[in-house]
Design a protein around this nucleic acid. Structure first.
Lengths: 119, 119
DNA sequence: GTCCTTGTTCAAAATTCATTGGACAATTGA
DNA sequence: TCAATTGTCCAATGAATTTTGAACAAGGAC
C-alpha cells in the first residue's frame, strides 16, 4: 500500500507554510534535517514529541503538503524530507527553514533521546 | 498611539510561518511586495480581500509575528514589510516567500482594483 | 499459530482560529 | 460644529485544527 503524495508541481506555498506553521511539525522537520537524508526516520522515533496517534495525523499533514515522503517498510513508515522537490519548487526556502528548525529545543530533546536508546 | 512590534531578535520562525500560513495574510504580503517598499499600503487598500474588521485581525497577526510594521497616520494605518529585519533574522526566507506570493490570484485582483480607483 | 511491534482508523472532545456585526473612537475636511 | 473616513473593540458565531482513547490491521519474530 503506497500513500498518496502530491507531484512536485502540485506543491503550493500556502500549503507548505500552513504545514510548517505548527510546533510539532516543525520539530519533525528539524529532526529529519539532522539525520541522514537517505535514511530518514520512522514515525516511532518522533514519539518524544507527542502521542502515536497524533504523530499519524501530523506526518500525514506534512505528506499531503508535499514536505515529506512516507514509504512503508513492513509495519513501519520511513519518513524523509522531499529536499530536491522543495528546492526545485521554492529555491532556497527549505534551507532557511531548516537552518532555524534544527535548533528548536524540542528537536534537541528528541534527538538526544534517540541517541541514548541507540547506545 | 504606537502599536506594539516585536524586536528583530524576538521574531521567531514558528510565529512567522504560522502568520504566513493563511491565504488572506499571504495575499497581503503579496500586495506589499509589489508596492513601493517605503510607501507600503494602508489597511483600506486591502478591502478587496475581506471585511474591514477582519483586516484589523489579520494585519495584527502579521504585526505581532514581526512580518509587517504598522504606523498610524491620522486615522489611517500605513503597513510596510519588515524586509531588513526578516532578512537579518532568516536570510533569504522572505525572498522565496514573496516570489510565490506576488503571483497569487487574490493579489492580482486586489492590485488591479487599486489601479482602477487611482485612474 | 501466537505474541509483539508499529502504525492506522474512527468518533469524540478540546482547542484554536477566522469571520461577522454593531457600536464606538480618532482624525480630517467642510 | 457636523459629517465622512478609517479603523478598532467586543462579544458571538462558525469553522477548522489539534488532541485523545479505544479498537483494529499488518507484518515480523518466535
Amino acid at each position: 500500500m503506497t500513500l498518496p503524495h502530491p507531484d512536485t508541481d502540485q506543491i503550493t506555498l500556502p500549503n507548505v507554510l500552513a504545514a510548517l506553521g505548527d510546533d510539532t511539525r516543525l520539530a519533525i522537520i528539524g529532526c529529519l534535517a539532522r539525520t541522514d537524508p537517505l535514511e530518514g526516520l520512522v514515525c516511532g522515533q518522533f514519539c518524544g514529541l507527542t502521542s502515536k496517534t497524533n504523530l499519524t495525523y501530523h506526518v500525514a499533514k506534512l505528506r499531503e503538503a508535499g514536505v515529506v515522503k512516507v514509504r512503508p517498510e513492513g509495519t513501519k513508515r520511513r519518513v524523509t524530507l522531499r529536499r530536491e522537490d522543495l528546492d526545485r519548487r521554492f529555491p532556497g526556502f527549505l534551507d532557511t527553514v531548516i537552518a532555524t528548525a534544527v535548533e528548536l529545543p524540542q528537536v534537541e530533546a528528541t534527538l538526544r533521546q534517540l541517541h541514548e536508546e541507540t547506545a
